[in-house]
Design a protein around this nucleic acid. Sequence first.
DNA 1: TCTTGTGTTTCGGTAGACGTAACGCTATAT
DNA 2: ATATAGCGTTACGTCTACCGAAACACAAGA
Lengths: 261, 261
Amino acid sequence: MPRISGEGVSGNQGVVLTLRTLEALAHSKGQMGVTELAAKLGTTKTRIHRQLRTLLEHGYVAQSEETGRYRVGSRLISLGRHVTEASNLAGLAQPHLSKLREALGQSCVVSQFEHSGARIVMALSGRSPIEIGVKPGSLLPFHNSAQGRVMLAHADPEFRKTVLARPMNATTPETIVTREALLVELEKVRARGWATAANQSAMGLNALAAPFFDASGGVVGAVGIVDLVQYLPPQPLPEQLEAIVQAAAGISTSLGHIAGQ
Amino acid sequence: MPRISGEGVSGNQGVVLTLRTLEALAHSKGQMGVTELAAKLGTTKTRIHRQLRTLLEHGYVAQSEETGRYRVGSRLISLGRHVTEASNLAGLAQPHLSKLREALGQSCVVSQFEHSGARIVMALSGRSPIEIGVKPGSLLPFHNSAQGRVMLAHADPEFRKTVLARPMNATTPETIVTREALLVELEKVRARGWATAANQSAMGLNALAAPFFDASGGVVGAVGIVDLVQYLPPQPLPEQLEAIVQAAAGISTSLGHIAGQ
DNA sequence: TCTTGTGTTTCGGTAGACGTAACGCTATAT
DNA sequence: ATATAGCGTTACGTCTACCGAAACACAAGA
């Protein structure tokens, strides 16, 4: 007999499987097989297969012609574009960034997590007559920038592993370029929730960054300040730390993240 | 008796309604009611309501506490982020942009459609010693930029209407600032598939842009070139037109768009 | 106060989704 | 070569979980 509604369980239950399937496909960078999905989602192959058939027919997923595995489809991408546009990271982060600039007077930056690094989304230049900052649209490497490090530290462990396997170039004599050293640094960063990068991308330059997260707990991007080491020491001032952490927390909240993991 | 599979109809059918519901919510900027959704999707209130209940329980949609209407939820936003990241407009467009720069030697730009204007995603500067271009991350207005105009011309008619109702500032004496004149220009742009903007954002400057689309046929962004009017006349050269249109078509194809609307 | 609109709930019947099990097929290992 | 193991896919009968029509509770106007 059907459980009508009562409490807790209600509505369609096939739907949640579908959405979890799409989530799994979206989170996995490449393609996924039926069996793999069934195992990951704890259900039978048949169910997954039927769902995928339907999704395939409507263009939400696509199937590799040769391997038979499935990947995100064009219609889902289109949906994703509309959704992210509605959420609008730049607009959401702007008040927090302005407040940060107001409080510290230094160059402030918001960047977004991408698989190839930290993409600068927005920047406000500091009050100092000397222009220190990064250009919007540019991509910061994971290994030698505060923004990149703090994202990598909070990213999916498996993804972190693949990044650490990539070769790292030294932009200064002090740049961390060995897998082991960076691993140690990242562990420290993850534990305290913020990262610095003194003399890492250029001598005399430092940055301080903290991550923000969305509702699912995944890291979306980072907010940070950039300045000369003289004004932003390797061990940042308490007010700088507090301001950054607060700004990051504010953006997280705006993104629907519930504090406390 | 169940129609097993046969041809045409197969798989779950509740799923497609759910996804169409999410699409409807994503496309409408604000919130939507149960009745409204039911009418739009051609089904009963009951069905929609149950779907929404399930989606609500899992965080894919959110419900306004006071009006009872529904909007996109945090978890869907998170999904959208992952999906769009996987599609990666910047990476996709890069080869086409490089080819364009190669062919014309002028400053080339890719921008993405946003509700407040054309957001510059990527730019390559030209071969000329004089630096002409736009900075990545900046936002071009709809009314006085070629990129903005070509997007607006191909955007949803209703959205175009709301944009045209907004006040427009004149950045040069020649800038089109009246609703009627812009409407005429947009109609021309839509018909021929490309836009220019000579002396519109600054005197002596011109731009040429063509739009690209995703699989659903919606405009995603535009690719364009920027140069002095001297080198990019109000009526662009045939080779410039051809190169731009080809680049745009190439990006469309990469995005899964099937040529011919 | 009556009407007309919301979003929400109930309820029985049925058709559509479910699991089990078998099918081709391709690679890998024997 | 041959056997094995894994993949994505299909078949089919059971049964459950979704569906539609109609009623409900509440809000806003007339």
